[in-house]
Simulated scan of single mutants.
Amino acid sequence: MPDQHGAWAMLAVPFLLGVFLGRPSPAHLPLAAAWFAGYVTVFHGQQWLRLRRHSRNPRAAARHVRPGLVSAAVLAACGPPLVPAHPWLLLAAAAALPFLAVNTLYAWRNRERALLNGLAAVVPACGMLLVALRLGGGTLAEGWRPALACLLYFGGTVPYVKTMIRERNSAGYRRASVAFHAVALALAARLDPWLAVPFALYLARAAALPGRGLKPAVVGAVEIAASTLLLTTLLLPR
């Protein structure tokens, strides 16, 4: 399985919000399988592409072939059967292609950790909220505010995590991360006053935690708690 642990919350939280903000349906099960299998397929495909171009070890790329093919088979088994009853899924998939192209280009260039690459990955993940919501009978009018809240949170995790690990010595990244979170707090509060609570906490952690030498496992645990808080807040009855 892919070792990008932070991606799993980004894949799961918007999807679950879409399911439970609407009406859970049996069709959500194959959609979930296709969604997660699609992520695994893309991950291994991009790693194969990157390593074929940049690694001197011929076996490095080859180890991504079998898991990529297995996940692609799961995707093919679960995704296409949904299309006859829900042809709009093809439009949703097409909308994700430009962002997939950006991620693939960065993988080909061996620059997967670039800021823009991370932000491009966030958009289709948050868009899955709208897909899951509509599959359960909901409307885009019901889902755009929660989807935007997810976009604000997960978009903010991209610069924040960099300040904790790869850019932990960069004062510029810290300022940019805090500025992003301050804007996100203002926008989230306009979307829903209840969102001011978690987004104020996200701003506080972006300002207070960088530079404290936290281990990656601790950073990950904080983000699991933060994403769970977002999920809970958005599901609270209004």
Rank of each mutant, 00 (worst) to 15 (best):
P81T: 09
Y39P: 03
L90Y: 07
N103V: 11
L97D: 11
Y202N: 04
G172F: 04
L97G: 04
F15R: 03
Y153E: 03
E112W: 02
L17M: 03
Y160F: 15
A225K: 13
G45A: 03
F199A: 00
L135Q: 01
R109A: 05
A200G: 14
V42F: 02
A217T: 14
R111T: 10
A189S: 05
N103E: 12
N103M: 14
H181A: 00
G118D: 02
V70N: 04
G22N: 05
G137W: 08
A37Q: 10
L115H: 08
G68C: 09
P198C: 13
M10A: 12
Q46I: 01
Q4G: 11
P159M: 06
V131H: 00
L51C: 08
L203D: 07
T233L: 01
R175P: 11
W88D: 08
P26F: 04
L29T: 06
L116Y: 12
T157L: 00
A200I: 02
Y173K: 02
W144K: 13
P146G: 12
W108H: 12
W194V: 08
P216Q: 08
F20W: 15
E223L: 14
A77D: 15
R66D: 14
A208N: 00
L236G: 06
Y153W: 12
L91M: 11
P146E: 08
P24N: 00
R66L: 13
P81E: 08
G155S: 14
R59I: 08
H64L: 10
S71T: 14
A171I: 13
P81N: 07
A188I: 13
A226N: 02
A76G: 10
T157Q: 06
N103S: 13
V158G: 02
W194A: 14
L230M: 02
V13E: 04
G136N: 06
R238K: 14
D3A: 05
R50L: 03
L191T: 00
A208R: 01
L75I: 01
L97I: 11
A125P: 10
A184C: 00
A196M: 09
G22E: 07
P30N: 09
W144H: 13
H54T: 15
A101N: 03
P146K: 06
L21V: 05
Q46C: 06
A9L: 08
V131Y: 00
A226Y: 05
A225Y: 12
C150H: 13
R109C: 03
A121Q: 09
A101H: 01
L229Q: 12
Y202A: 07
